[in-house]
Computed example of a mutant assay.
Amino acid sequence: MSIVPIWVWVGLLAGALAWVVVDRLGFGVTYWATRDPLRRSAIREAARIRRTWPRTAHALGLAHTVTTTDRRGRGPATTKVLIPPMVGIRVDQAGITMEFATVLGIGADDFSRQATHLANAWKVAEVVVRQSTPGRVQVRTPRPAQITTYSVKP
């Protein structure tokens, strides 16, 4: 039985790390399997939205700060920032759909109030917010209709 050299394990680890980074930037398997340039740009845009969501939520006030102490009231107080987690993101021909879980104090009405600011932060034309199920908020960024013109050369 042969022992695998250390450089093989280092290479596998480096490849896995590169795969995670590339997928996080929006250049994963789905990106390269897609031939439509508009869908590719939507995949990159969705990756950017997913990557910057915690910072955007905090900046727009879609985060809730909770200060707690231990049960007896002794000890230092701990502060936690609760940001609605993005539980799903889907790209299709009509746009990008994101699903968020609600947290204490942040719901669909807060997302609706910040819809124009979300659109500005994400650099999209508009943002549509609706409550899909209790405890879930669906945020959609519809893509503008693609207008194609053809010219016939004589």
Rank of each mutant, 00 (worst) to 15 (best):
Glu126Asn: 11
Val29Trp: 13
Thr116Leu: 13
Pro134Tyr: 08
Val29Ala: 00
Val66Thr: 08
Gly26Cys: 04
Gly15Pro: 14
Trp7Ala: 15
Val91Gly: 12
Pro134Leu: 12
Arg44Thr: 04
Val139Gln: 03
Asp70His: 09
Arg71Tyr: 13
Thr141Cys: 14
His58Leu: 07
Ala121Cys: 06
Leu13Val: 09
Asp110Tyr: 07
Phe27Ala: 05
Leu25Ile: 10
Thr30Leu: 09
Ala42Phe: 03
Leu104Phe: 13
Lys153Arg: 14
Leu104Arg: 15
Arg35Phe: 08
Met98Leu: 10
Leu17Cys: 10
Ala14Glu: 03
Val139Ser: 09
Gln146Asn: 12
Val21Gln: 02
Leu104Gly: 14
Thr30Met: 07
Thr52Pro: 08
His117Pro: 10
Met1Trp: 09
Val103Met: 00
Gly88Thr: 07
Pro142Asn: 04
Ala14Phe: 06
Lys123Ala: 13
Ile106Thr: 05
Thr79Met: 05
Leu60Asp: 02
Val91Asp: 07
Trp19Met: 07
Ile3Trp: 09
Val81Met: 01
Gly73Ser: 03
Leu25Arg: 13
Ala57Glu: 02
Leu17Gln: 10
Pro154Ser: 15
Arg74Trp: 10
Leu60Tyr: 00
Val152Ala: 15
Ala108Trp: 00
Leu62Ser: 08
Gly28Trp: 03
Ala145Pro: 09
Arg35Glu: 12
Ala42Tyr: 08
Ala57Asp: 02
Pro142Cys: 04
Trp122Asn: 06
Pro84Glu: 03
Leu17Asn: 13
Ala14Leu: 11
Leu17Ser: 15
Ala125Asn: 07
Thr67Val: 10
Ile147Val: 07
Lys80Pro: 00
Gly88Tyr: 03
Val81Ala: 06
Gly88Cys: 10
Thr97Trp: 04
Thr133Gly: 00
Ala46Gly: 05
Glu99Ala: 11
Ala42Lys: 05
Ala57Phe: 00
Ala119Trp: 01
Asp23Asn: 08
Val127Arg: 02
Ala33Asp: 09
Gln114Asn: 07
Arg130Lys: 12
Thr102Pro: 00
Gly11Phe: 07
His117Gln: 14
Asp109Arg: 13
Glu45Phe: 08
Trp32His: 09
Leu13Asp: 04
Gly26His: 04
Val21Asp: 10
Val29Ile: 15
Leu82Lys: 05
Arg130Asn: 10
Val81Ser: 01
Gln93Met: 02
Gly88Val: 05
Glu45His: 14
Thr56Leu: 08
Gln138Cys: 01
Arg51Phe: 09
Asp92Met: 00
Arg140Gln: 15
Gln146Lys: 12
Arg48Cys: 06
Val81Cys: 01
Ile6Cys: 13
Val91Tyr: 09
Thr148Tyr: 12
Ile96Asn: 05
Trp122Leu: 08
Ile3Pro: 00
Ala94Gly: 15
Met98Phe: 05
Thr102Met: 03
Ile96Met: 05
Thr65Trp: 04
Ile3Gln: 14
Asp109Tyr: 06
Trp19Pro: 13
Pro134Asn: 12
Val20Tyr: 11
Leu12Pro: 11
Ala125Pro: 15
Pro85Trp: 01
Ala46Trp: 03
Val10Met: 12
Asp109Thr: 13
Ile106Pro: 07
Arg140Ala: 14
Pro54Thr: 01
Val128Tyr: 05
Ser151Thr: 14
